Simulated assay, not measured.
Amino acid sequence: MTQDMGWGPGAQGGPPGPPPGWGPGWGPGWGGAWMPPPPKPGVIPLRPLNLGDILGGSFAALGRHWKQLIGMALVAYGIAALVLGGAAAIAVASVHDHFDPVFNPDYDVNPARSDVEPLVIAGAIVVVVAIALWLLSMALMYSAVPAVLQDAVLGRRSTFGAVWRTSWSRFPAVLGTLAIQMGAMLAAMLLFIGLLVTTVLASSGAGHDAPPAALLVLFAVGFLALIPVGIWLWVRYGFAPAAAVLENQGPVEALRRSGRLVKDAWWRTCGILMLVGMISGVMGYFIQLPFTYGGVFAAMPLALSDDSHGAKAAAVVIMVVLYLIGMVISQFLSTTLPQLGAGLLYIDQRIRREDLAPALATAAGVPPVPAGPAGTR
């Protein structure tokens, strides 16, 4: 319905004005009649969200429930750090005798293979353990954010215990969604690398010193093509953790659910997710910066005071501790803030496509939301 932009409340021929005594929150509704603004029991109004709602709601949820989120981050990353430290200590202890022959060999003497192989195997095991721990801790945080966001949207108070129970119960499903996505990308990368290695070996076996340049260019283009494919998959399945937690979906169904919600809204979803990610990245960088340089400046007097090993060791400890504090805060922001934005986008798509707002209003105990046109995007 086309409406004259010059119409105002009570103008002749325009929609009726608000009842006497009502404040400035009133505005023209879906049918042209004046109606109250949508309720806002929590961090967002219960209506289709715009960019400002999503950004403001993400920061508001982080500000109101930071204790629960930081508690979950300390559990996730703290346990991961302890396990990784233990694995690294065991690896170093098991191959300690091979360090000197490899890193301090005699002049013009190459390290023996029997000394190099144990170090490579131990390092590979530590890397695999680190990747597995990173995936597990990320899955736990991705389970916690929707649990917190549910209370933040409804305006309810949350406790660490309640968030932990919800997160732990949905942790396997969220871990499954992340593992499927990472497995698909890893399989594509391994297939591409396998084809490249096979081609190079075949060219060498045929007597060529190097594979044809055109073939190398083709492989380079194929490798670059994996980047947009990865971005497309990241956006398409970005709502899977929220669906797994808030709808009790299994891993595969959560991925399908995310794909259905992102359909016909991919570019909007991509733009907002990238914007929130960039904001969190910039914030994390500027937060980590003073800790990094502060550690350097704080440790410099100790490092320059004398030649004692104790002073230098204390300088190193100060730099490492301050750097790790900044890194933990930065990692916390880069993990939680984008997921809060993704969760609000998930709720926004359900409000637009499935008229979720009345159900949210009922759950929050506030008056129902005026219904809008079906399929509003």
Rank of each mutant, 00 (worst) to 15 (best):
G17R: 12
G17D: 12
P18F: 09
P18V: 07
P18W: 10
P20F: 06
P20T: 03
P20H: 00
G21F: 14
G21Y: 10
G21K: 07
W22T: 13
W22G: 11
G23H: 08
G23V: 00
P24E: 13
P24A: 06
P24V: 03
P24Y: 12
G25V: 02
W26A: 07
G27L: 05
G27S: 06
G27I: 01
G29P: 08
W30L: 14
W30T: 14
A33T: 14
W34K: 14
W34R: 15
M35F: 09
M35L: 07
M35S: 12
P36S: 04
P36L: 01
P37V: 13
P38Q: 10
P39R: 04
P39Y: 03
P39S: 08
K40S: 15
G42E: 03
G42Q: 01
V43N: 09
I44H: 01
P45E: 11
L49C: 08
L49Q: 05
L49F: 10
N50R: 14
N50S: 09
N50H: 13
L51I: 15
L51V: 14
G52Y: 01
G52L: 14
D53K: 06
I54N: 10
L55G: 08
L55P: 01
G56R: 05
G56Q: 07
G56K: 05
G56I: 03
G56F: 03
G57W: 08
F59N: 02
L62T: 06
L62F: 07
L62G: 03
G63E: 09
W66F: 07
W66V: 12
W66Y: 11
W66D: 06
W66N: 06
K67W: 09
Q68D: 08
L69K: 00
L69E: 00
I70G: 02
I70K: 04
I70M: 09
G71T: 04
G71P: 00
M72T: 11
M72Y: 06
M72S: 13
A73I: 00
A73T: 02
A73N: 00
V75F: 02
V75G: 02
Y77C: 02
Y77Q: 04
G78I: 01
G78A: 01
I79W: 03
A80I: 02
A81K: 00
L82E: 14
L82G: 15
V83C: 03
V83D: 06
V83I: 12
L84K: 12
L84A: 07
L84R: 13
L84V: 12
